[in-house]
Amino acid sequence: MTGSADTSGRLPDAFLRPGSSSFVDFLAAHSPDLLPGRRPASGSPAGAGDPLAPHATTIVALTFGTDGADGEAGRGVVMAGDRRATMGNLIASREMEKVFAADAYSAVGIAGSAGIAVELVRLFQLELEHYEKIEGSLLSLDGKANRLSTMIRQNLPLAMQGLAVVPLFGGYDLDRRAGRIFSYDVTGGRYEEHDYHSVGSGSVFARGALKKLWRPGLDADGAIATAVEALYDAADDDSATGGPDTVRQVWPVVVTVTAGGVQHAPDDQLAEMVEAIVAERRTAHVAAHGDRPAARRRTGREQGGAHA
C-alpha cells in the first residue's frame, strides 16, 4: 500500500503485525518513500555550499549544575541556536527555529540542510513518542542518542550529495541524574561530549567563547547567558550565523532540560541578557578606542582582500 494514510478500509496487515516499537522501522517496511534518506537522490553530486536549499547554522549546548547540595533539580543541559538560515550568500530566514524539544527530557538542535533537518527532527520526535506509547515507558538517554545516530546514518546518501544534516543532542539522564550532550558526524557516528559543544558554521567561534565562559557549577540562568554570549560571538565572525536582532526582537531559541522537563527561555529574559552583553561589549570598546568607530582612521584605504 503506497497510500500511506489511506483510511477507507480495514487496517492493513502491516499495522497489525507484531514487531518493533520503532516508528522509523515501521515506516521503512510500510512506506519507505516517507523516510528522508530513502528517496532516490538524482542529479550530480553537488559540492558543499549548494545554494539551492536553505542552510541552517550554529547550535551550542552546555551542561550545568553540580553534585552539591542543590540536588538534581539544579542539573541539566542548556541548548541554544541562532535564527538565521542562509541560501548561498542570501539570508533565507531570520526566524528559523533550529532547537526543538525531542521529548520531555531531551532536546535536539540541527545544523545543515534546513529542509531535511527539520523533517529529521519531526521524525525523531515521533520516533520517541511512538516508542513511549507502544512500550509504556521512556527510552534511556543513550537509547535516544543511538536512535538519532541510526537516522543520521540513513541520510548518508543525501549527505554525500551535499545535503548533510548534523544534529546536536542533549538531555537529562534520569538514571545518572545529570545533563549529557551528544554530537554526531554525517555518517551517524555518535560522540559523547563533556561540558559543552557546538556544531554548525559558526561553531569554531562559539566553541572558543564557550571554552572561556563555561565553568563547573554554573546555574541554569548562568548557562543560558553563556549560550547566548557564545552565539553572539559566533555571529560576530560567521556571516551565516545570525546575531540577536534588536530591531525585530528576534532572539536565539534557548531551551533548558532538567529533571523537571524541557523549558523554553522566555523572550524577556533573552532580551535582558542580550542587552547586558551588548552593553558590556560597548563599554569594552569605548575603553579601548574611545567613543568613536573602531575603523575610522582606515577609511578610504585598501582593506586587504576582503569582499565588501
Binding site: 494514510a5 487496517l11 497489525l16 516508528f23 521524525l123 515521533l126 513518542e129 511512538h130 506509547k133 507502544i134
Partner: peptide, 18 residues
C-alpha cells in the same frame, strides 16, 4: 493489544504524512 498498537501506528503515520 494488537489493535492498540495498530491504532498508534495508524495515528502516528497519519499525523506524520498530513
Amino acid at each position: 493489544e494488537n489493535l492498540r498498537v495498530a491504532g498508534v501506528r495508524y495515528a502516528d503515520l497519519r499525523g506524520y504524512s498530513y
